[in-house]
Amino acid sequence: MKLAAIETSTQTGSVALFEDGELVLEAEERASNAHGESIVAMLAALLGKAKWKAREVDRWAVGVGPGSFTGTRIGVSTVKGIAIASGADVAGVTAFDAVSDGIEIAPGEIAAVFLDAQRGEVFVQSTCIKEPIFAPISRIPAILASWHVERLVAIGAGAKLVDLSSFPGARIVADAPHDIPHARALAQIARTRTPTPVDLLEPLYVRPPDITAKKI
């Protein structure tokens, strides 16, 4: 099975191609313009190098965030377009799942994933909460304390932004590949995922839209 993955929810965009569970090719690039100009060019170049046609890919994995709203929409919209034209399966993978992929959690440990939400805030997901949240970095110690966590595993580059001094035994896993979501992790997760109906594929925003009252 041919599987391709696209990740655009942070400034580092990446693409990975897998065949029958093996990595064929991958590429990664930092882009300040939310990947609008670069990601499809990068994908097309990688497909060409692998001598694949986009319509031959059986499944497309895409990062759904949370992250940059515009960046995430770029990846999701690209994959929607491909799926409309080729009929391929799609699988949306959250940045929380991508960042924590492959990390073993020992009995008694509680994992929390922290992603940089910009503006002095982080996105947080943990088994201690039903839905992911976003909160100011300064409030995170109090939030963690309210969970009564004894052995914390803090995952993701956002963990480096948070003051974890009140959790002296915390295990921090914040370096690559567990810093930000990468296409390779998306592909590995998407291999065994039930496909997402293409019309239900949407970014996981977590943060509501900014709404400024219109001036008269």
Binding site: R73, S77, T78, K80, I82
Partner: peptide, 12 residues
Amino acid sequence: VQIAKGIALAAE
């Protein structure tokens, strides 16, 4: 723009 690129890429 991105959905159009996705369609154009896959449909050649």
